[in-house]
Design a protein around this nucleic acid. Structure first.
Lengths: 335, 335
DNA sequence: TTGTATGCGTTATCAT
DNA sequence: ATGATAACGCATACAA
């Protein structure tokens, strides 16, 4: 006695096929344990005819899983995160899942807003990319209980984490600069309260100390990982004193530094050698090609997504450390 | 007499506040037209105490809107789409909406899969970025009726569209090359079946004809918008004949071309002038800095998202054409 | 001013 | 082998 069901619903398919919604659900979910082929065919035919697609919202509400992953990045325009995003999305798409992208610009209030948005959407997991800051209190008070979280980069959050040895990465770079006779190495860091800055700075300081290089505190300056910051800081450093090497904590900063050096008539690598960090694609496109510490961003993303979609429970606080590699290019080729 | 409701639900809040779920819903949705402050306070307090956040799935199911936008791009690793994505996400986040990101790699089967995934998620709208191909049949047969769609770039789909004058953009570039005395201009196009290739090729051919330049068909070659394609095609073209200018239909291709030219000892811009298209950030970082046709990708994204979230219905097939601008840099600076 | 009841479209539990 | 029915969590029409 029911009237025509709304189009595009299981009920409509059921009516057309002359069965109940239960049967429709069973057939279309592959749980047709003991349903005769003939009935199944009728259901399939009706579904195709009506272009039926199950409403994922209703399904999610019922099953408690949304088949979606939240991805939080500081800025998707930053090349560092492209490969992360691709890695996450490739794994997700292959599993029939979807990726919700959010940008925080490293602003705590926006980080908080993004987490809220994603939790509201009941994502199955969150990939938190981009290192955290030393004061994480804005992320307290969330109910993470029904969401898997994986962080990429240094974080203090109690979640499984994908990291690199930031300290060793920068230390390796400084050693390379020392090998080509650099003694005063300008360090273009990120913001002081970024954990990634703190880790990498530790590597810089340790290497400088053990190599007996100049420890002038003025050689450490702080920027925001943009090209313009690199340019300005380097110009200022050129005016203030001298240095014969530059280690920048990301490639954009290093490229900015090379611009400032070129503008000042300083030759790279002869007068000043420059090393960046992250090895984004532009590193090998600039002139001179930029020596940089390379990480496997795409694999970070893939692994994070796999941890979230995997059936094995995530060990809280477990850390997976990926390798890094110093790629020597022209910006440090001194002979 | 009902037992304790599941935590984190409106029902739980209602019990704690001693009201009905209706009241909870009204208060928390701001529709508390005539509810005494005292009652509202009790509800707010209970909600805060339980860390209550409405389940967006249930709300979406009920209200028919998901507060989400689907974004389809060929490849989020491609710099062209970063600003588009940022534009979409900025607008979305400001409106409390979320962006679902999908990559197609320009593979029709994956385009289809992405659309299915997004429609299943009942997104409020889809931003289809990256030009289409001339055979759109894989996108027929979808039920778009309950989803707003906006395309960015040339498409044959019957949706409102954000475009540029691709033909004029390339024509302008060719005119610039002619001004600096180029006569044989190598055209590094995309795939022949991409609409963007066809539009831009029309501009190339028209300009070449009206300027009386060399129309040798071997000067037009087809790639896939990657740096390596640009490099290989250019190397092949160098071996096969001569040319004094290059117009590449995207910047990655142009940068690849410059590598091939450098490897062959050909000077840019003196022997061969090079122009790219899209003006992605690397264009000004390479050496020599790349002349390129600039578009407003960020605005594309913002506008598309605004069209989707706006209350005004979208006029089917309406086209908004954004301006383009040729940015002259060192790769065409011949004197 | 507040509450009850119904439905959004599924899936799962129990019947038959 | 199949169906009726009850959730999932919320918003709303309708009562009171």
């Amino acid at each position: 006695m029911t009237g025509a069901a709304r189009p595009g619903t299981a009920k409509a398919v059921a009516e057309l096929a002359g069965v109940s919604v239960t049967t429709v659900s069973r057939v279309l979910s592959g749980q047709a344990s003991a349903i005769p082929q003939e009935t199944q065919d009728r259901v399939f035919a009706a579904a195709r005819q009506l272009r039926y697609r199950p409403n994922s919202l209703a399904r999610a509400l019922r099953k408690g899983t949304t088949q979606s992953i939240g991805l939080i990045v500081p800025d998707i325009s930053d090349a560092y995160f492209h490969q992360v995003a691709r890695g996450v999305e490739d794994v997700a798409q292959a599993a029939g899942c979807v990726v919700i992208l959010t940008n925080t610009d490293r602003v705590p209030a926006r980080e908080e807003a993004c987490v809220n948005l994603l939790l509201d959407k009941r994502v199955d997991g969150i990939v938190f990319a981009g290192g955290g800051i030393d004061d994480d209190t804005h992320l307290d008070g969330f109910d993470w209980s029904s969401t898997r979280v994986v962080t990429i980069g240094p974080h203090q959050l109690p979640f499984p984490s994908i990291t690199v040895d930031d300290s060793a990465a920068i230390s390796d770079a400084v050693h390379h600069l020392a090998e080509i006779s650099c003694r005063r190495i300008l360090c273009l860091a990120g913001q002081p309260n970024w954990l990634v800055t703190q880790r990498r700075l530790a590597g810089y300081r340790q290497a400088v100390a053990e190599l007996g290089l100049d420890t002038d505190p003025d050689l450490v300056v702080y920027g925001d990982f943009t090209e313009s910051a690199g340019e300005e800081l380097t110009a200022k450093a050129l005016a203030a004193g001298s240095f014969d090497g530059v280690i920048a904590f990301n490639d954009y900063t290093a490229i900015g530094a090379m611009h400032a050096l070129a503008s000042a008539g300083v030759r790279v690598p002869d007068d000043v050698a420059v090393i960046g960090c992250d090895d984004i694609p532009v590193a090998r496109m600039v002139h001179p090609a930029l020596t940089s510490v390379s990480f496997s961003q795409y694999e970070f993303g893939r692994n994070a997504a796999e941890m979230i979609l995997g059936s094995v429970p995530l060990p809280a606080g477990q850390r997976i450390t990926f390798p890094h590699e110093l790629l020597r290019r022209h910006s440090t080729a001194r002979r």
